[in-house]
Amino acid sequence: MENAKGIVFKYGDNVDTDVIIPARYLNSSDPAELATHCMEDIDKDFVKKVKKGDIMVATKNFGCGSSREHAPIAIKASGISCVIADTFARIFYRNAINIGLPIIECADAANEIEAGDEVEVDFDSGKIYDLTKGTEYQGQAFPPFMQKIIDAEGLVNYINAK
């Protein structure tokens, strides 16, 4: 899997799926349309500033709340190449794997990396590099079973291949 590399958007604890994509936009399931409202209730500038390949970093319990898959879909469609967090809420974690949005758990990286840093993630080794600060972190590798779903770029392809 190719490395992710980009500029960091940084958020705190308990970023819920209602702020990732508010329910008032759930009358659409079009990824491009959802992406235009991604994060708007906590960060109005996100959609204006985000560029393809950028990285989202947050601390505890990222993606808590509603099971809406529209949340990881909106993040992926906005151009974000990877989400790094201390912990992910479990439904978001499943959804991200299932739709092929790369995510990685690492407490130190989540706490130390700051907004605007340039960060690179090597998915094969689980290593996270903060190129701005010159620091390096070891992220949590996926169990082989989940890695297979990620390698297939999502659950649908994984099931089709079986």
């Binding site: 709340g65 509603s66 099971s67 809406r68 898959e69 990881p72 439904i91 499943r94 959804n95 299932n98 739709i99 999502g154 659950l155 649908v156």
Partner: peptide
């Protein structure tokens, strides 16, 4: 595909919320 699917645990079922792909 709704996070509050965990409700049915009240009856001694294992029930859990997932996303649309699941």
């Amino acid at each position: 595909a709704d996070s509050h699917t965990c409700t049915y645990g009240a009856l001694g079922a294992f029930s859990t919320g997932v996303g649309s792909t699941d």
